[in-house]
Simulated scan of single mutants.
Amino acid sequence: MKYAAVTSNIAGLGSDKWVLSAAASRRIAAGDAIINLTIGEPDVAIDRTLVETAVSAMRAGRTGYSNGRGEASLLQALSDHYSDRLGRPIGTDRFLCLPGTQTALFLVFQALCDAGDEVILGDPMYATYEALIRASGAVPMPVPLDPEHGFRLQAEAVARKITPRTRVIFLNTPHNPTGAILRPEELRALGALAAEHDLWVVSDEVYGDLTHGAQTFTSALADPRFEDRTIVAASISKSHAAPGFRSGWVLGSAEFCARALPLSETMLFGSQPFIADMTARAVADDRALAHAMAARMARRAAIIAEALDGVAGLRVLRPEAGMFALIDIRALTSNSLAFALDLLEKTGVAVMPGASFGSALEGWLRVALNASDDATREACRRIADYAETRKGRT
């Protein structure tokens, strides 16, 4: 039988990336005591007032069809939030509401890219990015992110990748898996480069409210000179501990939203009104839950660094934001998948191999920061013992 080319373009780029997470889930279902540090789940339940808002909306009959852009109350809440964050008016006509950041980014690349176009992005990258790009027919053009620059994408490296086929510079700030935050001057340089070559800038900013310590986040939309070519995607999945509600949005120019709206309506003609009501309340609330979550995750990153940095040649990269720390295991092996699988088998600790996030992170592990402090310490003890054993065999 014949299939569309997209099925070949994205073959192996879906659940295959999450082998460790699936293996850990199977072990947990079988009753094994696994410390699962694979997925960026928030470490607390969603605020009960948000659940009650959704339930009340359902009881009030907010279960019918919506429209392609999103419910008016949510569009206004987003407008108010970003107007305040960016310090200039951001109209409601600049948003499209979709079920989560993943769907929002899928829409963006479908709207911007044709077959054979090129999308420049950093490597390492979030595990689904390559498939998002290839599903549009475009080709990912990874730029290795240098640890010497804190894994932050540099305009000079991007410039060397630009060709006549380049269409988009794809950013992720704060970055998954490294936790790096692009600096204002780096964003300005990338925006100027995009303007020079008439390119789009797409920025996944879902971790923007999860900065650690005194770190600050700057949106790719901060500089108004580049706002007509810059598109931001985000959601309440991380900031409000609501990943299962699948509620996100795109912020772009009014022209982009008008052009992308028919595609959005073709994909999904409107999100659920009761979820929109909940999201409007979440967007309008302060970020106390996110800030408390970020503080706990920064503390766990410090626990990991104190316990593992320097042990058996391991090095720990502490994040500036987000839900993950990185462990450099290159002193022990260059095969992060084999290491992670054996670590799970021998110790019951599940982490993500760096190879799931691009070739530049081979020889690293991504460790989620959402387990309790005690579970994190225990995981570190087991990892340290395992690493010492591995070192003794080399």
Rank of each mutant, 00 (worst) to 15 (best):
L308D: 02
R287M: 11
F339V: 06
A104C: 10
P243Q: 08
A284D: 13
A138S: 10
T279F: 04
G87A: 00
D228I: 06
V158P: 14
E118S: 10
A30V: 00
L145F: 05
A298Q: 12
R315M: 10
A189W: 07
A290F: 14
D285P: 01
V119M: 15
I34G: 01
P243G: 07
V283R: 05
R69H: 05
G348H: 08
R134L: 11
E265Q: 13
T101C: 15
P142A: 09
T211D: 05
H81I: 01
A180V: 05
G392D: 15
T166W: 09
G213Q: 11
A222C: 02
L341W: 01
A241R: 02
D374I: 06
E255P: 02
L361I: 00
L145Q: 10
E388R: 13
T376R: 01
P319H: 08
T53P: 10
S79W: 05
P177W: 04
E378S: 05
Q76M: 14
C97P: 04
R377E: 06
L78C: 09
A282E: 09
R299I: 00
S219M: 07
T103S: 15
P42V: 02
L187G: 12
L317Y: 06
S73A: 15
P184V: 02
G64E: 02
T376E: 02
I383S: 01
A189H: 08
R183S: 07
K346H: 14
A159W: 14
V168K: 09
P273N: 07
G40V: 04
R167W: 10
L263N: 07
L289R: 14
L74M: 13
A4W: 08
D204R: 11
T376M: 06
R69W: 07
D84K: 12
T166L: 03
S219G: 01
V232T: 09
L210S: 06
T53C: 12
A131T: 00
G248A: 08
A135P: 07
I303L: 12
G248F: 04
W200C: 03
D228L: 11
T211C: 12
Y126D: 14
F324C: 03
R381Q: 04
T394G: 15
L98S: 07
V19K: 00
L199E: 05
V316M: 10
E41H: 07
P89C: 08
D385S: 15
N335Y: 00
F324V: 04
P224Q: 05
R59D: 14
L361H: 01
L221E: 02
H197W: 05
T211S: 12
A111H: 00
I39L: 13
A254N: 12
A241C: 06
V158H: 15
